[in-house]
Simulated scan of single mutants.
Amino acid sequence: MRLIVLGCSGSGPGPGSPASGYLVEAGTTRLVLDLGNGTLGALQRHASPWTLGAVVFSHLHPDHCSDFASLVVHRRYHPRPPYDATAAPLPVHAPPGAHDRFARAYAPSPEEYAATDLTDVFSFHDLAAGTPVTVGVDAVTVTAYPVVHPCPAFALRVEHAGSVLVYSGDTAACPELVDAARDADLFLCEASWPHDEANPAGVHLSGREAGEHAAAAGARRLVVTHVPAWHDRDEIAGEAKSVFDGPVELAFPDAEFAV
């Protein structure tokens, strides 16, 4: 597999990066994990949106899903689509309620929300904890693990041809994240602030906590992501390195990682 970072700025786009979004290539299958502010434009530097086999959302906070409305426009109104999108709706795997969430975001007014239907160009599928989903034609599986965040949220374990990529999504410290990342070849893990006992509970990880979860899971490699623009990325990566013996790298836009 190959992981391509579309955006990695935590909690919203920053001056040098879109918000959260990642392109995964596995054989001939392409899928996107999250599609935050600015990531649809970044995606088009690497692949046509028409070549995606699925879009998978870890959770439905805007910095992880707001560009979905633009993807609706792309698939409905592109003047030269390579095929009929209404005949081959793009699968969307997400926490329950995604269609309603995206319809509200796309509707031109609150009064028209009820009549907004996105199933002409997308098929919506609820993620279920521990139930693998097959994506594309190359035996790519995605398994969701519920994690701790202020809204329903999942870590995503992507497996293909013996390789394992795990994406934390947004999460606070929890044993389910360790389960998701067990023996991962690459663990893409959020770290949203420096370690401090006064950090709000149940929201995000510190750099130290990201490293601790990677170590507990036996991950082979850690890529730290989702650092907000107002924090020092090197400081947060340094915290992870202090508790995890494996390679630690920082995500950055357009970075590519072999899995």
Rank of each mutant, 00 (worst) to 15 (best):
R220C: 06
P247N: 05
P79N: 09
E159W: 10
L188H: 11
V259K: 00
F68L: 03
E256L: 02
A191L: 01
E235K: 05
L250Y: 02
G41Y: 11
S242P: 03
R157P: 08
L23M: 10
V55R: 00
D63C: 13
D34E: 10
A103C: 13
D232W: 01
L31Q: 05
H160A: 15
G207Y: 05
V5A: 01
G207C: 07
G136S: 06
D234Q: 12
S109M: 11
H93A: 09
A114P: 06
N37V: 14
A128N: 05
Y77F: 15
G169Q: 10
V178M: 06
A214L: 03
A237N: 02
D84G: 12
G10S: 06
D170L: 15
T39W: 06
V56W: 09
G246S: 02
G16V: 11
G14C: 04
Y113Q: 13
R104E: 11
S206H: 07
P18S: 07
L60K: 00
A26Q: 07
P175T: 09
V178K: 05
P200V: 03
T119D: 09
E212K: 02
V5S: 00
C151Y: 12
H78M: 02
H61V: 13
T131A: 13
V135F: 08
A19M: 07
G41H: 12
F102I: 08
K241H: 06
G16H: 13
P146H: 05
S66I: 04
L127M: 03
L52T: 08
T51E: 15
G21C: 03
A69T: 15
G16L: 12
S48D: 15
G130W: 04
V243T: 10
A161S: 14
A115K: 03
T116I: 02
T86H: 06
D170T: 14
T28S: 14
H125D: 03
Y145H: 14
S66W: 05
L118Y: 00
A114I: 12
N199H: 05
D138R: 08
P49L: 02
G207I: 01
V92R: 00
A105L: 15
A103F: 10
K241T: 11
S9Q: 10
R2C: 00
I236H: 02
E235A: 14
V56Q: 10
L40V: 00
H213I: 10
P62M: 03
V158D: 03
G27N: 11
H74V: 09
H64M: 09
H231V: 11
P79H: 10
L156E: 09
D84T: 14
P228A: 08
N37Y: 14
P194K: 08
L188C: 11
N199W: 04
P79S: 12
A161T: 12
G7V: 11
G169L: 11
A19L: 04
S58E: 11
P82K: 10
D183V: 06
G14S: 13
T171C: 14
A98T: 10
R182I: 03
A240S: 07
H74D: 09
V148D: 15
H226E: 13
E209C: 07
E235M: 06
